[in-house]
């Protein structure tokens, strides 16, 4: 099947190669100088809300990682490696979001533990009361 259509395909392949080169140049031109401001802002905002939700206490490692990634992203901007800066900013944001999610989990389990203790205490009291009767 391939053999019968090969002559036509070769002609198109040479054309498409040319097109690909043009596309690659265009993409390269577009991404060079601009710092990833949007991603950096999102990362900073995510870190700020993580700190607000007590992530320092409940997900310190994730928060530290997010801050480190953000610092690396800022350094990458200084050395004009904008592609790296963009990726690091995205990573900073996602790990800050993870810090928020893990903080919520820690808080929820803490509340449950407290409830369990209360329930145990109540049961104990009930048993004591039962014994008095």
């Amino acid at each position: 099947m391939h053999k019968s259509s090969e002559p036509g395909l070769i002609g198109r392949r040479s054309m498409s190669a040319g097109l690909a080169v043009i596309l690659a140049i265009l993409v390269g031109c577009a991404s060079t100088p601009e710092p990833p401001t949007g991603s950096l802002t999102s990362a900073r905002e995510a870190i700020a809300s993580a700190e607000q939700s007590d992530a320092r206490q409940h997900a310190g490692a994730e928060l530290d990682e997010a801050k480190q990634k953000l610092m690396q992203a800022e350094k990458a901007v200084e050395s004009e490696d904008m592609l790296d800066a963009e990726r690091l900013a995205q990573q900073a944001r996602v790990v800050a979001e993870l810090a928020i999610a893990r903080t919520a989990t820690a808080k929820a389990s803490q509340v449950n533990r407290q409830l369990h203790q209360d329930a145990d205490a109540l049961n104990e009291e009930l048993q004591r009361m039962g014994g008095q009767q």
């Binding site: 990573q91 996602v94 993870l98 919520a104 989990t105 929820a108």
Partner: peptide, 20 residues
Amino acid sequence: YMADRRVEIARATAATKLAE
């Protein structure tokens, strides 16, 4: 990296909901 953190976020979110 992004995928791994997204999975972890999903896990933590589900764990929170479970606790609730």
